[in-house]
Simulated assay, not measured.
Amino acid sequence: MIADPASFTGVRRRIREQLCAWGRTELADAAALCVTELLTNVHRHVPSPACVLTLTRLPGGGVRVAVADRSHVVPVAGPPPGACEERGRGLLLIAAVADRWGTTLTADGKQVWAELR
């Protein structure tokens, strides 16, 4: 897929639909937020907007959302931004709603993921 903000609404809708189909409606809002933030990071910080989004069921009823891109630059959560700053909250939001999150380096780039239970 292409990390284009114009497509994020449709992506969130599909994530919610899939989680409802899996009987995990309670995770839909958190998963949608994580996907939006991960895709936004690709859009803003990776030279190519091409990426792969995956949603995986985890044993025990959780889900893992992941976005893989072609950059080897690992995202780092910085200090909380000031109240008037427009950027810098994405990874902090993911950390707040996910049970775990991280980055896995791959031969072609990286995959940034969040697990929700």
Score class of each variant (00 low, 15 high):
residue 115 E to C: 10
residue 115 E to W: 05
residue 74 V to M: 07
residue 73 V to K: 10
residue 50 A to S: 12
residue 8 F to P: 10
residue 81 P to A: 14
residue 57 R to C: 14
residue 2 I to S: 02
residue 13 R to F: 02
residue 114 A to Y: 08
residue 73 V to R: 11
residue 50 A to W: 02
residue 34 C to Q: 05
residue 72 H to L: 12
residue 34 C to R: 02
residue 40 T to P: 05
residue 20 C to R: 15
residue 33 L to Q: 13
residue 54 T to E: 14
residue 19 L to F: 00
residue 32 A to F: 01
residue 96 A to T: 02
residue 56 T to S: 15
residue 57 R to H: 12
residue 12 R to V: 02
residue 26 E to L: 10
residue 61 G to S: 06
residue 19 L to M: 02
residue 35 V to G: 05
residue 71 S to R: 07
residue 80 P to R: 14
residue 101 W to D: 06
residue 81 P to K: 09
residue 57 R to P: 15
residue 54 T to P: 06
residue 112 V to N: 01
residue 112 V to F: 00
residue 91 L to T: 06
residue 13 R to N: 00
residue 54 T to L: 05
residue 75 P to F: 05
residue 78 G to T: 12
residue 66 A to Q: 13
residue 100 R to E: 15
residue 67 V to L: 03
residue 85 E to A: 15
residue 34 C to N: 04
residue 58 L to N: 11
residue 23 G to A: 08
residue 82 G to P: 13
residue 58 L to T: 14
residue 22 W to A: 01
residue 64 R to F: 05
residue 57 R to Q: 15
residue 106 T to Y: 11
residue 92 L to F: 03
residue 15 I to G: 01
residue 65 V to D: 00
residue 99 D to V: 13
residue 67 V to P: 03
residue 92 L to T: 04
residue 43 H to Q: 12
residue 72 H to K: 11
residue 108 D to Q: 14
residue 87 R to H: 15
residue 22 W to N: 02
residue 47 P to I: 11
residue 67 V to T: 03
residue 110 K to G: 03
residue 76 V to P: 06
residue 18 Q to N: 07
residue 2 I to P: 04
residue 42 V to Q: 01
residue 65 V to K: 00
residue 82 G to V: 09
residue 25 T to H: 08
residue 32 A to G: 13
residue 52 V to A: 14
residue 63 V to P: 07
residue 60 G to F: 10
residue 36 T to Q: 14
residue 80 P to L: 13
residue 113 W to D: 07
residue 25 T to F: 02
residue 74 V to R: 12
residue 26 E to V: 12
residue 74 V to Y: 05
residue 78 G to L: 06
residue 97 V to F: 13
residue 5 P to T: 01
residue 74 V to C: 10
residue 66 A to W: 03
residue 1 M to V: 07
residue 61 G to H: 07
residue 40 T to L: 15
residue 5 P to D: 04
residue 10 G to P: 00
residue 41 N to R: 01
residue 74 V to S: 11
residue 72 H to M: 11
residue 97 V to M: 12
residue 97 V to R: 12
residue 84 C to Y: 13
residue 13 R to V: 01
residue 47 P to D: 15
residue 60 G to I: 07
residue 117 R to T: 08
residue 65 V to I: 11
residue 59 P to E: 14
residue 83 A to Y: 09
residue 33 L to W: 11
residue 53 L to K: 01
residue 79 P to Y: 03
residue 62 G to S: 08
residue 102 G to W: 09
residue 30 A to G: 12
residue 43 H to T: 03
residue 1 M to N: 01
residue 113 W to T: 05
residue 52 V to N: 08
residue 116 L to W: 04
residue 102 G to D: 12
residue 105 L to T: 10
residue 114 A to D: 08
residue 71 S to I: 05
residue 69 D to T: 07
residue 88 G to A: 04
residue 11 V to C: 03
residue 91 L to G: 04
residue 114 A to V: 08
residue 58 L to G: 09
residue 108 D to C: 08
residue 38 L to S: 07
residue 45 H to G: 05
residue 51 C to K: 03
residue 71 S to A: 12
residue 74 V to I: 14
residue 16 R to Q: 08
residue 25 T to P: 00
residue 73 V to Y: 03
residue 90 G to H: 09
residue 37 E to V: 00
residue 13 R to W: 02
residue 50 A to C: 11
residue 41 N to K: 00
residue 39 L to Q: 07
residue 70 R to G: 15
residue 90 G to N: 06
residue 67 V to R: 00
residue 49 P to E: 09
residue 63 V to L: 00
